[in-house]
């Protein structure tokens, strides 16, 4: 992947190993990406692809037994690989914040909305309680919550799922972070609410010029929200690039396969057979070499067991990992 000018987050060769009974689970293997201010990167993948672990690795929230290695893991000039627990605490909730999937479980039921909103601000900034509450009301209004001042005294269970997710977003924005990581922020919500929340996230992110990583399995969400897309499969980024390029010219067999799997209103013929990706995600325990997708790939050849080159489409920012020059075996033969 090409260098982004003045990235706020820069990741090179990030590798996550989890010791399990009978070997090591190579959950994430050598992923690279850069993210600039005001940019949205969507990491898309199926369950077990390692996308959530990647976000936790950046936030320094991995379980202690998971081994994190990288050539570079830099956030606005701070080397996160060398940052100790205290340094990480001063960053989290302050300069980088996270929004989780389940607003029900990520808000503490024992505290009021106001307490939880102001907590990070009081912890990281030298502000008084009054100022913190004013800021909380301002942000609740910004995320579209009516009667914001009266909400501060309410408890999470008194709010609907959509409102709770808005509170989570307000909470993530309290300290004006420079990086937001949203892990499946709308998966637990209804479609109508999903659209509202995504719109809110995108508007706020543009307005405040924040860098955002959005993790999802929903290709529709990715297409509508992302500036840059990273398709993750079995711990590797198999295709990365600007959203227009990845969806306009999907190149890696996995990306193409995924896009064939979903019915697209107006494009897929109603009732027609959908594309499928047969087989299952391979085990990542033990020796993992070659292309992880080869067991399910229709373009697979013997070379897929070896080293897989990183290739670029005509647009330099659009990259993919495949033995085939165009992601297709057939095109090569005819060429």
């Amino acid at each position: 992947m090409t260098e982004t000018r003045d990235p706020i987050l820069s990741v090179r060769n990030l590798t996550l190993d989890i010791p399990v009974g009978g070997g090591t689970l190579h959950a994430v293997r050598g992923i690279d990406f850069d993210l600039a201010r005001g940019e949205t990167l969507c990491i898309v993948g199926e369950s077990g692809s390692g996308k959530s672990l990647t976000s936790l690795a950046i936030m320094g929230l991995l379980a202690p037994r998971i081994e994190r290695r990288a050539d570079r893991l830099e956030f606005d000039g701070v080397d996160l690989l060398k940052a100790g627990p205290r340094k990480m605490r001063s960053l989290r909730g302050n300069r980088m914040s996270m929004i989780f999937q389940e607003p029900m479980t990520s808000l503490n039921p024992a505290y009021t909305i106001g307490d939880q909103l102001t907590e990070a601000l009081l912890l990281h900034r030298n502000v008084g309680k009054k100022a913190a509450r004013d800021r909380a009301v301002e942000l609740l209004e910004k995320v579209g919550i009516t009667a914001a001042a009266s909400r501060l005294g309410q408890f999470p269970h008194q709010l609907s799922g959509g409102l709770r997710q808005r509170v989570m977003i307000a909470m993530a924005l309290m300290c004006e972070p420079e990086l937001i990581i949203a892990d499946e922020p709308t998966t637990a919500l209804d479609v109508t609410i999903q659209a509202q929340i995504l719109r809110l996230l995108v508007d706020l992110q543009r307005e405040m010029n924040v860098a955002m990583i959005l993790i999802t399995h929903d290709l529709g969400v990715v297409a509508r929200v992302a500036d840059k897309v990273a398709v993750m499969y079995a711990g590797e980024l198999v295709e990365t690039g600007p959203a227009g390029a990845v969806f306009g010219q999907p190149t890696h067999p996995y990306t193409r396969g995924l896009l064939r799997c979903i019915p697209v209103p107006g494009k897929t013929e109603r009732g027609a057979e959908l594309g499928t990706i047969p087989g299952i995600v391979p085990s990542l325990v033990g020796d993992v070499s070659g292309c992880p997708f080869r067991t399910r790939c229709e373009e697979a050849v013997a070379a897929c067991r070896g080293a897989i080159p990183l290739r670029h489409r005509s647009d330099d920012a659009h990259a993919f990992r495949c033995v085939h020059e165009t992601g297709m075996a057939t095109a090569e033969v005819s060429a």
Partner: peptide
């Protein structure tokens, strides 16, 4: 409904 069309926003 979010169709995978990057030309359209949210």
């Amino acid at each position: 409904v979010l169709t995978p069309d990057p030309a359209l926003g949210v």
